[in-house]
Design a protein around this nucleic acid. Structure first.
Lengths: 162, 162
DNA sequence: GTTTTAGTTCGTGCAGTTACGAACCAATAA
DNA sequence: TTATTGGTTCGTAACTGCACGAACTAAAAC
């Protein structure tokens, strides 16, 4: 595979992965930027490189990058004597990727709890079902901690560094 | 707590939980319907009861219910000699609540795989990071099966029936 | 065969989002 | 001090998605 061929395929993949992020609720421009940072060989992109590569406006890039930083997906580094920001994927600890699901599930558990306290007959089939779901979620949350431990145990040889 | 008081609180909770589902990407009407079926004491709602209770149009209810059935959140039953559909929560097996996350993660794993095969230098820091994330996701998927087993083992006394 | 019931589909309007360009700001360079 | 660089904020225009009402369909009732 030639270099040109590879770059062509990479740009195509940026589009594909961008679309997939969009389907999962992310905005078009943010999706493309994130995909760009994941797919291309360049480890860091400047603001202008991002604009250039994706053909978007400065304002769109500015807003999207702000959101991606808030969501902990992107960070930037700078170099002395160079005002440019160099954007790259934020290197989180791998088990943090479950934080979002965990919080979501925690809220669900609380909501089902509230629902059940307001029911006239806790023995009704719906309530039995809701209680089962709640227990499954609680079990899942408990398991995440265990999962983290097991993962760290398996991968303690390869240390993570930001 | 009087019955009226309880019903008032339940209706308020429908709104709260509806809003929360909205924040997680579900459409307003679908969110309200789902919340209604979860919160209220009535185990089944007819089409007209849903419309009446939520103050929405027939078309909005029709579209939303179709989506909720597609997503496996809602089902309906009928009774002989009665053309009405009685909608209720779909009683899935509790460990199925992870199916969506599992599929999403599976797609992510495939995407990262594609990304890595197209990289010029697989040893670059970004790629090392992506690989760690991929491994964490694979570990999570593997663990879901284990989770299901453990859950079934703990709860084998209380059988699930549709 | 006509009417009623129980919902579905279609076309439209409104509201919310998104991305753009222009104006702006802050820091460095000249 | 003015100009340039690097990015942000604001106002606007275009687009998108959602919910409504009206028209429609299919099945049962009469």
């Amino acid at each position: 595979m030639t270099t040109e061929e590879r770059i062509r395929l990479q740009k195509h993949l940026v589009e594909t992965i961008g679309l997939e992020h969009e389907k999962e609720g992310m905005q078009p421009v943010s999706s493309r930027i994130l995909a760009l940072l994941m797919v291309m060989d360049k480890e860091c992109f400047t603001f202008d490189e991002i604009i250039e590569e994706l053909g978007i406006s400065k304002s769109a890039a500015s807003v999207a990058l702000k959101m991606l930083q808030l969501r902990n997906n992107v960070e930037y580094i700078t170099f002395p004597g160079d005002r440019k920001r160099y954007f790259r994927l934020k290197r989180i600890e791998p088990y943090h990727i479950f934080e979002e699901s965990r919080k979501k599930m925690q809220r669900n558990i609380e909501n089902i709890g509230k629902i059940l306290t307001l029911k006239a007959n806790p023995q009704a089939p719906n309530n039995h079902f809701l209680n089962e779901i709640k227990q499954m979620m609680e079990f899942f949350i408990d398991s995440l901690d265990h999962l983290k431990e097991s993962y760290l145990k398996r991968h303690n040889s390869s240390n993570f560094s930001s």
